[in-house]
Amino acid sequence: MKRIKWIKNDVSFRRGNFRPLIARLDDSPFWLGFCACMTTQTFKEDVRRLAQAFGCATIEIKYHWDENGEATESEDSIVGVLNLGGGEYLFRQELPIPEGAKRKFREFAAEQIFPRCA
């Protein structure tokens, strides 16, 4: 198993830190966020497993929002990740819809998210 290089951007992994994070693996065109509320420690572990599953060598992690509540990346550059179990993942973005309408998603293939890894 190869060693993964981490770029942490001043993220704190102290116990009880629930600030939302996003991650970019290798030189992916997208930032990834897991579709669940979790601690930064859990996020780090889940991202590590995802990187190993796709053979990625570098993980960059940062907070989704800064201290002032401003997004650190544009929403169209962030893709949600759902772990379906058994090594299967679903990658998708929620599309803007009128209020009261059914939610719609844009789904991505792994090759779109990890062009060098998959």
Score class of each variant (00 low, 15 high):
Asp46Tyr: 09
Gly16Asp: 15
Phe54Gly: 04
Asp27Cys: 00
Asn17Gly: 06
Ile97Gln: 15
Ala51Ile: 07
Asn9Met: 00
Gln112Thr: 02
Phe105Trp: 15
Ala118Phe: 13
Gln112Trp: 11
Asp10Asn: 12
Asp26His: 03
Thr58Glu: 15
Trp6His: 12
Met38Lys: 13
Lys104Ile: 02
Arg24Val: 10
Trp65Phe: 10
Cys37Ile: 13
Leu21Val: 10
Glu107Gly: 06
Cys56Pro: 01
Phe91Arg: 09
Arg19Ala: 12
Ala57Pro: 02
Cys37Ala: 13
His64Thr: 01
Asp76Trp: 06
Val79Ser: 00
Phe13His: 05
Glu75Thr: 06
Glu75Gly: 06
Leu82His: 11
Pro98Phe: 13
Glu67Trp: 05
Arg92Leu: 14
Cys117Tyr: 01
Ser77Pro: 07
Arg3Asp: 12
Ala57Phe: 09
Gly69Ile: 03
Thr40Lys: 05
Gln93Tyr: 00
Trp31Val: 07
Pro98Leu: 14
Ala71Thr: 01
Asp10Thr: 06
Tyr63Ile: 02
Phe30Ile: 04
Gly33Met: 14
Gln93Asn: 04
Glu107Val: 04
Ile78Tyr: 10
Ile113Cys: 04
Arg48Met: 09
Thr72Ala: 08
Pro115Val: 07
Phe114Asp: 11
Arg14Phe: 00
Arg19Met: 10
Lys44Tyr: 11
Ile59Ser: 06
Lys104Val: 00
Arg49Val: 01
Cys35Pro: 01
Trp31Cys: 01
Arg3Gln: 12
Glu75Tyr: 00
Tyr89Pro: 08
Lys104Glu: 15
Gly100Glu: 13
Glu107Leu: 04
Leu25Glu: 08
Glu94His: 06
Ser77Gln: 03
Pro29Val: 11
Gly33Glu: 15
Arg3Thr: 14
Thr42Ile: 14
Arg3Ala: 02
Glu107Gln: 08
Glu107Cys: 00
Thr58Pro: 02
Arg106Thr: 00
Leu50Gly: 10
Gly86Arg: 06
Arg92Gln: 09
Phe13Gln: 01
Gly86Leu: 04
Arg48Asn: 13
Ala36Thr: 09
Lys2Ala: 07
Glu107Ser: 10
Ile59Val: 15
Glu45Asn: 12
Asn9Pro: 05
Leu84Phe: 06
Thr58Gln: 15
Glu111Ser: 08
Glu88Trp: 07
Gly87Gln: 09
Ala23His: 08
